[in-house]
Design a protein around this nucleic acid. Structure first.
Lengths: 184, 184
DNA sequence: ACCTGAACACCGTTCAAGT
DNA sequence: ACCTGAACACCGTTCAAGT
């Protein structure tokens, strides 16, 4: 719009996603609209649809990309239970980084992207090595995921951004769940 | 709009909330708009603002009203731990009833209405009687609430509406958390 | 006090057209 | 292939006016 005539925007899918992340971090979820995003990129609103299927697909991509930051312990770690704890804590820390994104994980009821699948596979392997029976793994995994995402959602509620009490609460609950999982 | 001239709509706050509940149940969260709600009530969109401060306040009222369905065990129940389990299970069951509402509890990061406060007070009393130290109660309560809301959010994800596996998973996790809470 | 018409400042998305 | 102008079918909310 403010570009000179004849020039091209030269948009990229990566550029759109990056701008969306910045917009989300700086102004929050309510401000993340297609039109505001286009304004930031100095482009007409419908230009975004050349790189993204729609707002839903954009957000799904944002969610899964965010999980790329989760540190993935090798599935053959020495102590499987400690490795599961580390994996979940890393997930919690990653989620807390983007508070506005967390409720959307609940909306989507668990991300389905490549990174989410990768973490799920790793966790199942670790739980198996920890001695959890095959038919008990879905319950164990489900409870751990609910705990990580739910805790992250509540962590950003009150207290300062770096509130340690929320993280301590998450760690305590994680320990209780893991104790119950390995004992059953 | 389709009413005869001279007649009055005779709206009530309760009528607005009731219609909102019906709309939510029948057509889902995306369909719950002020304008659609007004259409249902055969009224101009802005007429709603005589009975409700805005959409946010309407949803907050919907959320807290929903918690009225939670069975509140007397705080002086014989077995405090069993009473906490019953209270959380009743909360889970109530939440599962309104799947579209559950993600909003996360958005609001825990309802602040009268019913939510009531349940919180009851739970604190039960936890105290169960021998949980005063400074450990916030962590215990927080983990239980996260578990109930998070489990309800995921419960409606896959499987049939009356899926028992989701409820069984919730019950298993609840047991693990309670065991950890009373042991610490 | 309660309701209306009209308006304001937005949305996501589609379509035909240009390069 | 990528981008634009224009439009469609919506939003939540406010304001001045009527009864």
């Amino acid at each position: 719009m403010a570009r000179g005539p004849g020039t091209r925007a030269g948009l990229t899918r990566a550029a759109v996603l990056d701008a969306a992340r910045v917009l989300l971090a700086e102004e929050g979820l309510a401000a993340l609209t297609m039109r505001a995003l286009a304004r930031r990129l100095d482009v007409a609103p419908n230009a975004l649809y050349s790189h993204v299927a729609g707002k839903t697909e954009l957000i799904d991509a944002l969610l899964d990309d965010h999980l790329a930051a989760v540190h993935d312990p090798t599935a053959d770690a020495a102590e499987p239970v400690a490795a599961v704890a580390a994996l979940m804590t890393s997930t919690f820390d990653a989620l807390v980084t983007a508070p506005d994104l967390v409720p959307l994980y609940l909306d989507r009821r668990g991300a389905r992207g490549a990174n989410a699948v990768r973490l799920g596979v790793t966790m199942d392997a670790l739980l198996t090595r920890a001695g959890v029976a095959a038919d008990a793994i879905p319950t164990a995994r489900g409870n751990l995921i609910v705990h990580a995402i739910g805790s992250a959602a509540f962590a950003t509620a009150d207290g300062p951004p770096g509130s340690r009490t929320a993280r301590d609460s998450f760690v305590a609950g994680l320990g209780w769940l893991l104790a119950g999982i390995v004992r059953s």
